[in-house]
Computed example of a mutant assay.
Amino acid sequence: MKIAQIFSLIAGLALVPMAMSATATDSSAEAKIKQKLQDTLGVNISLFQDSPIEGLYQVLTDRGVIYVTKDASKVFHGNLYDLDNGMKNLTEAALLGPRVSMLKPFEKDMLVYKAKNEKHVVTVFTDVDCGYCRKLHSQMQGYNDLGITIRYLAFPRSGIPSANADEMQAVWCAKDPLQAMTDAKSGENVKASTCAIDIEKQYRLGMAFGVSGTPALILKDGTLIPGYQEPKDLLRTLEAKL
């Protein structure tokens, strides 16, 4: 299998604009590896560092983490686990900090259902049509009553472009986006309108985070929790992080 084919197995090929991490302190060898990854795989690199395995670099790209040999001849995409540390997912751990920093520019575009007595904030990549997204939304008051603020970003499961993405664009551009989200998740049609919100960028961010389905929950420390959790279950998860 060609190296470029590896990524054809990953859902979606959209790219998230990221700044290359190459600096004046990079060795020429590392710079050449970065360039080869860009040219061969078409990825953008945001972090390039030694991995926990000797002889491998760990590279954070707009499609998640990949590992590349130091001679740039071999690359693999997948999770790395620590057998001596309770099967800790080292790949997931590598994404925590970057997810937190990458979320910051998107805060102004999030649809926020704020808890009155806020104790926790959870960012949810959501889709207006998925069943568990609708279930989560129907329990919004339950999350809020427990002090959990829910912030939405769009992740249209049908990809970009699609009717699904257009529907979510209409929600974000509505005069009252919070009500429009409730209407859409109740099966109502939200009238299309235009605005400066870029749903595609939100979708691409989710791809970079490793989101493959909805809902996908991002906690304050950058942890990704795939799937739905009842309000009380989510609270227990959040409190266990403290």
Score class of each variant (00 low, 15 high):
180 A>P: 02
34 K>Y: 11
184 A>D: 04
151 R>W: 02
165 A>E: 05
127 D>P: 02
159 G>W: 08
173 C>M: 00
223 T>Q: 11
4 A>I: 13
94 A>R: 10
197 I>H: 10
49 Q>V: 12
77 H>F: 14
127 D>M: 06
148 I>A: 05
123 T>Y: 01
201 K>S: 06
26 D>Q: 15
147 G>W: 12
81 Y>P: 13
133 C>I: 03
124 V>D: 01
227 G>C: 02
122 V>Y: 05
172 W>P: 01
225 I>D: 06
91 T>Q: 03
234 L>V: 10
91 T>I: 10
201 K>G: 06
69 T>A: 12
209 F>W: 06
182 T>N: 09
230 E>A: 14
195 C>T: 02
238 L>F: 09
152 Y>T: 08
79 N>C: 09
183 D>F: 06
71 D>I: 11
81 Y>C: 11
108 K>A: 04
11 A>E: 13
27 S>L: 10
23 T>P: 13
208 A>G: 00
223 T>N: 11
183 D>V: 07
183 D>K: 10
124 V>R: 00
48 F>G: 03
196 A>H: 03
162 S>V: 04
241 K>H: 07
224 L>F: 12
151 R>S: 07
129 D>S: 07
54 E>I: 06
211 V>Y: 00
111 L>D: 00
213 G>E: 00
90 L>A: 12
100 V>N: 08
116 K>I: 10
114 K>Q: 07
4 A>C: 12
101 S>I: 15
123 T>I: 05
162 S>W: 06
16 V>G: 12
139 Q>R: 07
119 K>S: 08
51 S>K: 03
113 Y>K: 02
155 F>L: 01
180 A>I: 04
192 A>F: 12
146 L>G: 14
109 D>W: 02
198 D>H: 10
210 G>I: 04
196 A>W: 03
202 Q>F: 09
196 A>Y: 03
74 K>Q: 13
193 S>I: 08
180 A>Y: 00
16 V>M: 14
15 L>K: 14
26 D>K: 15
51 S>A: 10
123 T>N: 05
12 G>D: 09
168 M>T: 10
79 N>R: 12
67 Y>S: 01
206 G>V: 03
119 K>D: 04
159 G>Q: 03
15 L>H: 13
48 F>R: 06
133 C>E: 02
38 Q>E: 15
64 G>Q: 06
164 N>A: 13
57 Y>P: 12
3 I>N: 14
197 I>D: 07
75 V>L: 15
223 T>L: 11
132 Y>M: 01
135 K>G: 02
170 A>L: 04
231 P>E: 00
239 E>P: 09
83 L>I: 11
238 L>A: 12
226 P>L: 02
40 T>I: 14
106 F>Q: 01
238 L>Y: 07
41 L>V: 08
120 H>A: 05
149 T>M: 03
101 S>E: 14
173 C>A: 00
111 L>F: 01
98 P>K: 06
31 A>N: 13
80 L>Y: 08
232 K>Y: 05
175 K>N: 03
226 P>W: 02
108 K>F: 00
95 L>N: 09
206 G>D: 01
8 S>T: 07
20 M>V: 15
109 D>I: 03
132 Y>V: 05
